[in-house]
Design a protein around this nucleic acid. Sequence first.
DNA 1: TATGAATGAGGATTCATTCAT
DNA 2: GATGAATGAATCCTCATTCAT
Lengths: 199, 199, 199, 199
Amino acid sequence: MPKIGMEEIRKDQVIKATERCIVEKGYSNMSVKDISAEASVSTGIIYHYFKNKEDLLLQVIKESFRKSHEQVMETVEPLNNFEEKLMKHIENINRVPMDNPDFYTVMLNYLGQAKNNPEINGIIAKFFKNLRSYIAQYIKDGIELGRLKPEKAKHLPALTIALGMGIGMQWIIDPESFDIADIEKSYKEMIESYISLEE
Amino acid sequence: MPKIGMEEIRKDQVIKATERCIVEKGYSNMSVKDISAEASVSTGIIYHYFKNKEDLLLQVIKESFRKSHEQVMETVEPLNNFEEKLMKHIENINRVPMDNPDFYTVMLNYLGQAKNNPEINGIIAKFFKNLRSYIAQYIKDGIELGRLKPEKAKHLPALTIALGMGIGMQWIIDPESFDIADIEKSYKEMIESYISLEE
Amino acid sequence: MPKIGMEEIRKDQVIKATERCIVEKGYSNMSVKDISAEASVSTGIIYHYFKNKEDLLLQVIKESFRKSHEQVMETVEPLNNFEEKLMKHIENINRVPMDNPDFYTVMLNYLGQAKNNPEINGIIAKFFKNLRSYIAQYIKDGIELGRLKPEKAKHLPALTIALGMGIGMQWIIDPESFDIADIEKSYKEMIESYISLEE
Amino acid sequence: MPKIGMEEIRKDQVIKATERCIVEKGYSNMSVKDISAEASVSTGIIYHYFKNKEDLLLQVIKESFRKSHEQVMETVEPLNNFEEKLMKHIENINRVPMDNPDFYTVMLNYLGQAKNNPEINGIIAKFFKNLRSYIAQYIKDGIELGRLKPEKAKHLPALTIALGMGIGMQWIIDPESFDIADIEKSYKEMIESYISLEE
DNA sequence: TATGAATGAGGATTCATTCAT
DNA sequence: GATGAATGAATCCTCATTCAT
């Protein structure tokens, strides 16, 4: 076992294990011992790399959002026109529950803590703001090109995110309630009919 | 104090106190002692009226959803035409975060527990299903009247709920991010443009 | 087992057990589990009656000093003239190490904590101040009767206490170093020669 | 950095750091990590030079007493007559709390451990014995010169040390309780009146 | 019914000590 | 010699639950 230069490796090992624990046991039902067992390390090591459990939990959600952000950038940013970007973004959002259901599980666990933990609330608020600002960027192009009315733009980011999250949430709770692959078309139609693009 | 017929009174007293505790301290940070103090009863009494803490928590969310259901019935059902009903429903949904922010706080706390507690998951699933079925009812009238295309109807309930919940969630996390009273118009427009009612 | 009106009994039971633990294991080597075992109660009960370990430890020394104070009042106060009182007090002080060696053990343990615990420091400071003020009372009578020169009175309380404590401390550490019963006479002589009473 | 002959330097470095930690945090509140940080070395090095924490702590008090001994020898021994020596010794003792308050802090911390640590008890016992034997030496000269009655000599060492330590202890706990510089005169007077030197 | 004292398992955290590098 | 990552037992404390009153 190497003992030097392990910091990043260990931190990552613990963060990943914590994420698995949240998914398996839930944010508030998992002990530091559970995490250390899942990560195959001693409990002590967790306190060597993180100030305390809360600090670890904060790093976990930060990391989770960081990865989410990365993914958006990779798949959406290379696209050229605003319509493609927006629709790609919608697709991305819509596929999270299927492709990465753990993300929702983790997110819902943290959402439940947000009202009583300002730091968590702040991190989630920032994440939401980011999501909205991506979309705000795309539609700015649409407005400039004269294809999108400014008054529609105002709430479009929040509404787009709302739809995606609301769908995901319902589906996570009850995957039987609708076909999530199928709903993507309706999701897109709803957005498209709202912005009613000018030819 | 009369000692007969206290059952309902006591249960209600404890359930209301628990709700306040969830709002103030959070689902997983509150103890039975906290609840009993908030309800001004002994801890023993809680175990007299509820099987255990989990049972109590289940009653709390059931009661919360029951009241929510009641409210919808009272304000929406008296209306006559489907359009009014749908729009009234949207208004209702959109005003929950402002009128009754505690409902969201409680709901988010339970959502966080859902994945690890099948009973809670079931209750929430049933609640969502109910919400969707109200809307499904209204739009059935619209289809019958020939004012609404059936293919649009399929996902409309889920999409309507999704929008409302998604907006509420973003606003609860960060009330600065948009004007929730203002967004109601856009919410309605989005639904209206999607269903593009036939005259 | 009665469950009502036990507060004082339980507190006392725990305080006494803690004292025994301090004597047997030392202030900083004893765990709450040790105390609860010694008191034949659960660890939980300790937290039912005391805020935390520190609070308990504070009550222990307060109680210890309270009892010490009581003893002085009982044996010294009934006496009439100042000389008898002073000498009785000296006797009392000198006999503590023999009659109640645990008092010294406990006291030394707390003295070691004093510099890092302002509350403990304050309690000990108050205790010392009390001890000195008793003696100051006796000698005031002596001065008024013209049998004691005021300039001698100034430091007499501190010096008397110092001698007693210093002797006790040496003897507690090494009982072989001198005969503590025997040293009492010298202790008294030293005080008497210092105040050199006027006939 | 030379790697040979570092032993004494390193040991001293660690012992001094430990002393500072005892003063700052207290004997039982300081960790090996605290010590290593204070000494600017790794924790591993401490176990290279000392068997374990207890061993280190033992070396610390030994060193502390060794230095104290050295100081007495330097200032008192050069003097010629027994009276000067005794009074100089008293002065020394009385000035420790002011000149080197850390000595008292350290000493009180170890005194608290003594009853539960025979080794510490032994070291302190030996230290006290040393202190008494210095004084015993001086007064032997006084007896031989016929200026001091043998019966007074018996307990004089213990009483002198007792006074000094008792004063110091009271003053360390509450420096407001008396003027320690001022009390020196009374301290000396008390000793002088007791031995009532023959002209 | 109603109380709250009592239990003890379990949780977060610390820390002396070891050991691969 | 020197480092500090790693361990895991032990500590303080909380809390759901029970039960004598």
